[in-house]
Amino acid sequence: MRRSWSPFNITSVVAGFAFLYLPIVLLVIYSFNGSRLVTVWGGFSTKWYGELLRDQAVLDAAWVTLRVAVISASVATVLGTLAATALVRFADFRGRLLFSGMVYAPLVMPDVIMGLALLLLFVAVDLDRGFWTVVLAHITFSMCFVAVVVQSRLVSFDRSLEEAARDLGCPPWKTFFLITLPVIWPAVAAGWMLAFTLSLDDLVIASFTSGPGATTLPMKIYSQVRLGVTPEINAVCTILIAIVSLGVALAAIVTKRREVQKARDERMAAAGSS
């Protein structure tokens, strides 16, 4: 029997969603405000998006952020997938406890400590701070999230598929790319999206590890917000929200189509066997 929602439950859910998403909705609405005063509505206008396209400093920061996010997410996905495979498939190797601790440590470590530790590392090895130090820093913390996501999929993976491929003479590396990787691909793609989003959003670690010519968009936004919120900032944040929302929507559509295709194949296999 389905229980009906009480007024208290409905009020709690509405208040929770309003607390989370109402500020975002207001930010998007005021990005189309025609007035330069952020809190005063001056009519609908898209002129601040035009101003944003003429702001070369913001465009340069956005380009740096996009390159850092794509590179770091791609490398972190590869390393995180390999780390998850090692933790799941080789459960008894020497040093596993230390390795798993090193993988999970950045998940619970404060960003300030992480950024300071990486800064001291780059200074110790005499590596000039710039674009590539930010990339290395983002790879360091985002690969841990990828490892957790992929590991959760590998735990429930049916290893009899790999064993069948091995019995037919398929080498281990070919088995991984032809059997294992296609099955766990949704988790790998989700890990990439998570790493990409975390890189776009990062401010603290990038502030410690960046240098001249490597100002990311969150750093640029923070430096401008300290002088006061402007309509251009609302426009930038709206574009970031749109990019992340589009990525999440595409990932959900692809996952849904794969599930539908899998269910269709299972029905066809069942009909053929009967």
Rank of each mutant, 00 (worst) to 15 (best):
Y49V: 00
A62E: 03
V68P: 09
D92P: 00
A61K: 03
N33H: 05
T85N: 07
V75R: 04
A76N: 08
L52F: 13
R94M: 09
G95Y: 12
V75D: 01
N33A: 03
R54Y: 09
F90V: 09
T77I: 05
L107A: 03
T46L: 13
A62D: 02
L97G: 15
D55W: 07
T77W: 09
L59K: 00
L52Y: 05
L98V: 13
A91L: 07
P110V: 10
A69I: 09
F99C: 07
V70S: 02
T39G: 09
A61S: 15
R96H: 14
G95N: 07
Y30Q: 06
L98Q: 07
L87P: 03
V108E: 08
V64A: 02
T85E: 06
L26D: 02
A86K: 09
F32Y: 12
Y30G: 00
G95W: 10
S100C: 03
D60G: 01
V103P: 07
W41H: 09
G43D: 09
W63G: 07
A86S: 11
W48A: 00
A84L: 03
D55T: 03
T65M: 07
D111Q: 13
G42N: 07
V28A: 14
G34I: 01
L26H: 05
L79E: 01
T65W: 13
G42H: 04
L66Y: 08
M114P: 02
V112T: 15
L98M: 11
L27V: 10
A73W: 10
A69T: 05
W48P: 03
I113K: 11
R67S: 03
G50N: 11
K47V: 07
M114V: 14
S45T: 03
V38L: 01
A69W: 12
T39P: 01
G80N: 02
A76V: 03
V58L: 14
V75M: 07
V88A: 05
L79Q: 02
G43V: 06
D111T: 10
V103L: 08
L27A: 13
V112S: 13
S72K: 05
A62H: 03
G101I: 02
L53H: 02
D55N: 15
T85V: 04
A91R: 15
Q56Y: 08
N33F: 05
I24N: 07
G34C: 05
T77R: 05
T39Q: 02
T39L: 10
V103S: 01
L82K: 01
W41M: 08
G80V: 00
F32H: 04
V38W: 04
A83C: 12
D60T: 07
G101D: 08
L87T: 06
G34D: 05
V88C: 06
M114F: 14
R94Q: 08
P110C: 14
L52K: 01
T46W: 15
R67K: 15
N33D: 10
S100F: 10
S74V: 12
D60Q: 10
T85W: 13
W48R: 00
Q56T: 08
V112G: 11
D111R: 12
I24K: 02
F93P: 09
S100K: 08
F44N: 04
A105N: 06
L37S: 10
A62F: 12
F93C: 10
R89M: 12
S45L: 04
M109A: 15
V40K: 09
V88R: 05
L59W: 03
W41K: 09
V58M: 12
F90P: 04
L53W: 15
D60W: 05
F99I: 03
A76K: 04
R96S: 10
A69Y: 11
A83E: 06
G95S: 09
I71N: 07
